[in-house]
């Protein structure tokens, strides 16, 4: 999104000409293979007890993230994309993270056992009221 007008070779979509595409096919097949292996690993890792269920979830998500990154970087060519696309995808990632993190944070910050209530226990009459 810069406003310089530096001429670039028109007609090349991804910075590589038609000649290079044949070389990429190997990469695509390789990535496809990795993804299939990754799927197998995900299924296998789910059967292993890593000690805590949360750790299992973390490992499963990690594998999924790696797989998703491979798809995004190589199949969707994000490894060599234009600045404009990086800019608005960056904003998107920021906002979607904000949505997830802030929403979760606000749920974990509900005042269940507030300091105030602990220091000022309600009168018995009010307690029945509050328990509704």
């Amino acid at each position: 999104m810069s406003h310089d007008h530096s001429p670039k070779t028109a007609g090349s979509h991804d910075g590589h000409g038609d000649h290079d595409v044949s070389k990429h096919i190997r990469t695509y097949l390789l990535i496809g293979g990795f993804l299939l292996i990754g799927t197998a690993i995900t299924v296998w890792a789910a059967t292993i007890d890593f000690g805590s269920h949360n750790l299992n979830i973390g490992i499963g998500l990690l594998i999924a993230t790696v797989k998703a990154s491979l798809v995004a970087l190589f199949f969707m060519h994000l490894i060599s994309e234009k600045t404009a696309i990086y800019m608005f995808l960056g904003a998107t990632v920021f906002f979607v993270t904000g949505l997830m993190v802030l929403t979760l944070f606000s749920f974990s910050d509900l005042p269940k056992d507030s300091e105030f209530l602990r220091l000022n226990p309600p009168a018995p009459a009010a307690q029945t009221e509050a328990s509704h």
Binding site: F95, G98, S106, D109, P111
Partner: peptide, 24 residues
């Protein structure tokens, strides 16, 4: 435009939000 995405819960103070998230 940018900040407008991270102010939304000021509509929800009355829902019993905690103090930390309210402050944010």
């Amino acid at each position: 435009g940018f900040i407008s995405f991270i102010v939304w819960a000021h509509h929800m103070y009355l829902t019993g939000m905690g103090t930390k998230i309210s402050t944010f």
